[in-house]
Design a protein around this nucleic acid. Structure first.
Lengths: 214, 214
DNA sequence: GTGCGATGTATCGCCGCGATACATCGCGAC
DNA sequence: GTCGCGATGTATCGCGGCGATACATCGCAC
């Protein structure tokens, strides 16, 4: 989760912890926090796994600075070759691990680096996931509606409408993806491995954000 | 968090673990899971704290059943007097602890047992919280819009619209609360302590759910 | 020249989640 | 009539994220 986010961000440019967190907030802030309390341990884990290296800048340069004060240099992280492989692997995943509530946002944020085929499959997966849930809530709501507290009901209905909204959003996105896939054929994974391609040239931006009737 | 949810549910009726979880899903399912992995430890903690007791039903009744098979009776939990006090205390809180993302839903779900004054303050607190966040995202979006990836942008905008939607929802709810407060005066906390009252008679249900233009 | 807010690295304890294990019960298929 | 299966029921474990917190440096304003 955080792992994917970090790999995705470092793919674009080497960063140090603080900056990483800023980007995290800027990119995913609407729905996810990612405090240092998870970031640093994750970085440690990833380094141990060999996905990233820390090219720790100062420290060596200012080697004659008072070592007792614990002179701390910025620790700049960047991807290793294995890290890039790992990223490609994560980005090519199109299963539940990509469309569950907690993960979907992160995967979506890096759609720019994701294979078009995978994009569609993830979007569809999430949509049917949400549709399932919606049906569940709807029926359980129909059964218990009368017995329910006024506020509980209101909460339920607000949640239901949120889900509805996201389903509509996803449907729009899927259609857009389909359209640009049709406009750009000769893409159905000709060479060996899929998902490893970084380009992901943005398709003709179709004016985005269906500004229609909300 | 879970603590409040459990207290709130047990206030309505004694329940055992499994049932408790069902209710939890039914009441908050749209936005919160609450697996057994948190439920049982919480129940344990709450019992240790003295908020609840388990009137474990069977086990004693069928005392002659083979004890080696570990005959397990349903464990029915119910509130103690201290538990009721604790619940009242939690329900009377109208600070950030009541309107943050994770907590708001639970507090709202038990608005039926909450003092009308507190209800309004929580709703307003949440609303300004969301408005703050919205402003933050909006400006940061305005600054970086051009540099942003197509998908990141889309994600951001969808998030922003979600926040907008919730703000509108809250505004509606606040107005409704205000209206029923005006219709039912002589309520501004006449006796000693506030928030301790369980009645919370539902105000004249104003046909709910603004079925207007969505 | 001093204080304060942004930058920067890091840890700690808490809490919730998903997976899993295991036992019982009621019911329909065969 | 029994066999299995899905619902009911209690419980644990490890993982990962969160908020609070600590502490150090830097640049700038007053």
């Amino acid at each position: 989760m955080l792992e994917l986010a970090v790999l995705g961000l470092l793919q674009e440019a080497p960063l140090h912890g603080y900056e990483l967190r800023q980007r995290l907030k800027a990119t995913l802030g609407t729905f996810r926090a990612f405090s240092y309390g998870s970031l640093y341990p994750t970085l440690r884990r990833m380094q141990a796994a060999g996905w990233i290296t820390h090219d720790d800048g100062d420290a060596t340069v200012v080697a004659d600075a008072p070592p007792l004060t614990g002179r701390r240099g910025k620790v700049v992280y960047k991807l290793t070759a294995e890290g890039k492989e790992r990223l490609a692997e994560l980005l090519s995943e199109a299963g539940p691990s990509a469309w569950e509530d907690e993960t979907f946002g992160v995967h979506f944020a890096f759609f720019g680096q994701t294979d078009p085929e995978v994009r569609v499959r993830i979007l569809e997966g999430r949509r049917s996931r949400l549709e399932e849930r919606r049906e569940g809530v709807r029926t359980s709501l129909a059964r218990t509606r009368s017995r329910l507290d006024r506020y509980t009901l209101q909460l339920q209905e607000h949640g239901l409408e949120s889900v509805d909204r996201e389903v509509r959003w996803l449907t729009e996105l899927i259609e857009t993806e389909r359209r640009s896939a049709r406009a750009r054929p000769a893409d159905p994974v000709p060479p060996g491995q899929a998902g490893t391609r970084p380009p992901s040239d943005v398709p003709p931006p179709p004016t985005a954000t269906g500004r229609g009737a909300p």
